[in-house]
Design a protein around this nucleic acid. Structure first.
Lengths: 338, 338
DNA sequence: CCTCCTCGTGGAATCGATTACACGGAGGAT
DNA sequence: ATCCTCCGTGTAATCGATTCCACGAGGAGG
């Protein structure tokens, strides 16, 4: 593969001049410029990004470590992150932690070794020493969706509070009083928070959230199934199951079906995170929708701000309730009336 | 960030010795080894992968360019690719082409600039000059799922022939005679092939596949909707719609619902590519399932074989039919009988 | 006409690793 | 005792770029 030396030789100029043309440095004669460009074309030369990175200590690459690629929410997040990064001239390397702290560390380490310019993380756990060290050592970093307490790192996330309040109001209006939640891992912020806002919203209606109605999941479908089975085995099962993410909602749906029960007639179901498939499930699932694309874009902008020396800001965007049929009472089809 | 020179200074040895310890070169005294390791630990040193890559002309990184990350089929493929690569000591950089040839080229170019060791591609189109040049120039490359004719690159893919034959047999047994297909882009191999095997399977039953029953899609949900509407507007609409991928099947389902029609009573639906969500749609969708994980792993192995000087082999694995309820006649629940 | 600047260019250092080669010392063979 | 080999180590070249510094030519200003 042709190097800058070959181009210099072909153009009859020095490598310095070639480099200047390639980085459009002002002081190059028009003549030299055309000669270099001609040589580049005939040789099909492309600069070696590895060499350039070594010299400039800059890779124009962002690392993104997410908890689970198979979760459509994170897939969409990854997609919007890559789009925004590309628009700003950066590439993205995605690491999939699969909700495993060891894998998360593996990816963080690999990305750091490659000297990425900045790191976007949705932490799987309460924070590995590795990540905390990296943050303290000054690696540009931004948390997205989930975050870790006690670290001075900007956070870009959705606030589900008002949407969950709306959800509870919706459920209450439908006559439901016994509401249960499938929580995420307590080690994640989203795992705890969603339970907290749900409990707070219930309190507004003087509805308690007993321990029996708060199941411990891990954001994977299987745990949703397990916890839901537990709920259904209760002497007095809940009337509604609220899953703290979309995969656990799927598991819950499975468990309910396996018992021959119907949604929403026998039991209602709602989920945190909205995904395209929820329109097509049987029945369509009522969900709290995060502004996923906007979150990804905001996260990239914050990170790039930090990298390029500006002051990054934390961002919180509101989630909103999307009512479908999984909690009962099909919503009116025409909402066009003012 | 500490460099190998700092480690050498800390250990009171030369950089050469440090490097030898780090790469466990045999001729290092035990004493030197411990001194180096101690220095590495106190400094928290990590080798700079960029510098190493420049020197060794090796990045231990694979590029994966897929057509659409939002498509669960490709997400799962990406995941299995990363897993297998990690097991073999490689990292993966994913590029999402979004079914756009220009984006595909952008990613291929970026990956090549970064001097990845090998490239895994599921081409969006018939083959850009860029990719053909790269292949000819000797970049280790393997096609997965889709491929390009006339290039000497191993292909790892699924063979849907027998599964599609099974599907047609299933449909025929249910009494369906007017079968339509939503094809993928003609520029892709999978776009054309799936139509061909479908037509061949129909021929076995003397069923023709008229032009009116072959709609042109682009592997995205919206095109599935559009084509299906066309089918439904026909004076004699088909009894079955077979979508050549899962997203178009989703679009088809939308279109059918929008007309107030029911699946499978009014019209049957089947899809190429099986995904977890098909179990939960209303009704569950009958599909041709590819062995996605195995494909990803086989592709990585072939690529690594090529990179490490062994001879890579093309691999074709059989797809299989998964019958659900979207074509009629709920399958018997107990299949345990011998 | 001389001096000083500016501009275009090239030489060479540099980034952080790997590795060929040289070298000194220890130990074995003769 | 001499010579050879092998082992552990260090020096320095190298990968492919960027960039500081020096230099010569040419133009402007005195």
């Amino acid at each position: 593969m042709a190097s800058i030396k070959d181009v210099a030789a072909e153009a009859g100029l020095s490598v310095a001049t070639v480099s200047r043309v390639l980085n459009d440095h002002p002081s190059v004669s028009p003549e030299a410029r055309t000669r270099v460009l001609a040589a580049v074309a005939t040789l099909g030369y492309r600069p070696n990004a590895v060499a350039r990175s070594l010299r400039t200590d800059t890779t124009r690459t962002l690392g993104l470590v997410i908890s689970d690629v198979l979760n459509p929410y994170f897939t969409e997040l990854a997609r919007s992150v890559e789009e925004e990064a590309r628009a700003l001239g950066y590439s993205v390397i995605i690491g999939n932690a699969d909700e495993r702290p060891d894998l998360q560390d593996h990816h963080v380490r690999t990305l750091l070794d490659r000297r990425i310019d900045g790191l976007l993380v949705s932490p799987t756990d309460g924070g590995s020493p590795l990540m905390l060290d990296a943050a303290r050592a000054g690696t540009p970093m931004v948390f997205v969706d989930r975050w870790i307490k006690g670290v001075d790192v900007p956070v870009v996330r959705a606030d589900g509070q008002s949407a969950v309040r709306d959800l509870v109001a919706h459920l209450y209006a439908l006559g439901h009083r016994r509401l249960a939640i499938i929580a995420g891992p307590a080690a994640t912020t989203t795992g705890r928070e969603r339970v907290d806002v749900f409990r707070a919203a219930l309190a507004d209606y003087d509805i308690p959230l007993p321990d029996a109605y708060t199941g411990q999941g891990d954001f994977q479908a299987e745990s949703g199934r397990r916890v839901t089975e537990g709920f259904l085995d209760l002497p007095e099962p809940p009337e509604v199951v609220f899953a703290a993410d979309n995969l656990m909602a799927l598991g819950a749906l499975d468990a309910i079906r396996a018992r021959g029960l119907r949604v929403p007639d026998d039991i209602a179901l709602a989920a945190f995170d909205d995904i395209p498939w929820f329109v097509h499930t049987d029945p369509p699932i009522t969900a709290v929708a995060q502004p996923t694309g906007a979150l990804g874009r905001a996260a990239v902008r914050a990170l790039v701000d930090r990298i390029e020396g500006r002051t990054p800001r934390s961002v919180t965007l509101p989630a909103r309730l999307v009512v479908r049929r999984s909690c009962g009472e099909p919503p009116a089809t025409n909402r066009s009336k003012p």
